[in-house]
Simulated scan of single mutants.
Amino acid sequence: MVQSALWDFLRGQFTRLPYPETTFTDQVVIVTGSNVGLGFEAAKHCTRLNAAKVILAVRNLDKGNAAKRAIEEATGRRGGVVEVWPLDLSSYESVKAFAQRAMRLPRLDVLLENAGIAGPPYRLAEDNESTITVNVVSTFLLGLLLLPKLRETGQRYNNTPRLPHLVIVSSGVHYFTKLPEQSAPEGKILATLNDKATANMGDRYNVSKLLEVLFTRELAARSPLPSQAGNARGKGGVIINYLNPGLCHSELARNAGLGLKFMKFLLARSTEVGSRTLVHAASAGEETHGQYLSDCKVSRVSPLVSNDTEKHGGKLHTRIWDEIVRKLEAIQPGIMQNL
């Protein structure tokens, strides 16, 4: 199955991806991690495609403002269309402050969660190893805090061409971990990942992306669209999907070893081409709700994920869901009422 995944990866790297043309007219879009790389290019596409407001959610405001100027220059759209807001996913208070500000927006049509970190050094951020804090806990903390705003937008503007979107930028590397930490006692997977003495940082980015996939699938399953729930369309549903942008030239793996850098030299997509997968997910239809997207189409998840659902009653899904939910409730009591 690993060989099949590798073949899919190689074939995908040379797949021609459609250039984004779907309009974002009147929409408000937030893109995290958007001062560079995939997030920057995705924000530029959304601005070009007539979004009413594109918010660059960034850790470094100077770099964010430089990105804002570059997007305005490239698209010719000025006058406050692009805004720069501070967001540090290594801080729960920063995430909560950002969400409180976003809740005051007149509408929110797309939350495109692109920000993430990858790198071997072990360090703590809040109460977890930093990769887990940034890529998993804070990502879903922000998503759940803003889910009511997305749902409200769907209710208020139910004559728009499509429902609001919560998009998680995951990765095909979720195929390449077996999550050995799942052998931990019940309720202790995250605690085991936080143990510096046993942490396998070479596998940590893969693990974080697997946790994203598992949690997003459960989140979507517990947030059915109105059409799926048998109700009238457009009554506040939110399309939740997650995607693999492929191997791209970006700053994400700037701490990578020579092997990955050489692979990127040979195979990586340009940053702009990779960003097309983000924009596709942010404008895709209801058929993508709960689905994993790769090469701008619905694709298969890893056997560890699919077999867990089909053969074992979703035990791993449930364990990951329960542990992350407990952590989110400790950070923001009552957050799960936002479902």
Rank of each mutant, 00 (worst) to 15 (best):
E72D: 14
P164A: 10
V167C: 03
N114V: 10
G172L: 10
L108D: 01
L145R: 03
R107V: 01
N206Q: 13
K178G: 12
L150G: 03
E126H: 05
L89V: 12
D109A: 06
P180G: 02
E181S: 11
T192N: 12
V136C: 10
L124G: 13
V137T: 12
G154Y: 08
Y92C: 06
K188L: 12
L141T: 04
G116N: 13
G143L: 04
N135G: 07
L124I: 15
I168C: 09
R162N: 12
A184K: 13
G116Q: 12
S138W: 04
G202E: 09
F140H: 13
N159W: 15
T160L: 10
E83W: 06
D203Y: 04
A70T: 05
L166V: 03
T131C: 14
V84K: 10
M103D: 03
V84H: 11
N135H: 10
G76C: 14
V110W: 00
L147V: 10
D109N: 12
R107M: 02
P86S: 04
L111S: 09
R77V: 13
E72Q: 15
A118Q: 13
N206L: 08
I117W: 01
E72L: 13
V81W: 05
L146F: 00
I71Y: 14
E113F: 00
D127M: 01
G116I: 07
P121S: 02
L150D: 04
D203W: 02
P180Y: 07
L144N: 15
R123V: 02
E83Y: 07
E129M: 08
S91T: 04
E113H: 09
F176N: 10
V81C: 07
L111Q: 07
G80P: 11
P164C: 05
I189W: 05
T133F: 00
Q100P: 01
L166R: 08
T131H: 15
T139E: 06
S91E: 07
S208R: 00
V95R: 02
V173I: 09
D109Y: 11
L108E: 01
A118E: 11
L141E: 02
E83V: 11
T192M: 13
N135M: 11
G154L: 08
S183D: 13
V84W: 06
S90H: 15
V167M: 03
A97H: 13
E73G: 04
A199Y: 14
R77C: 09
R78V: 15
V137I: 15
F176R: 11
R204F: 02
P121L: 00
D109S: 06
N158C: 05
E152Q: 08
N158L: 05
A99Q: 04
L147T: 04
G80M: 07
M103L: 10
E129R: 10
L179Y: 00
L145V: 02
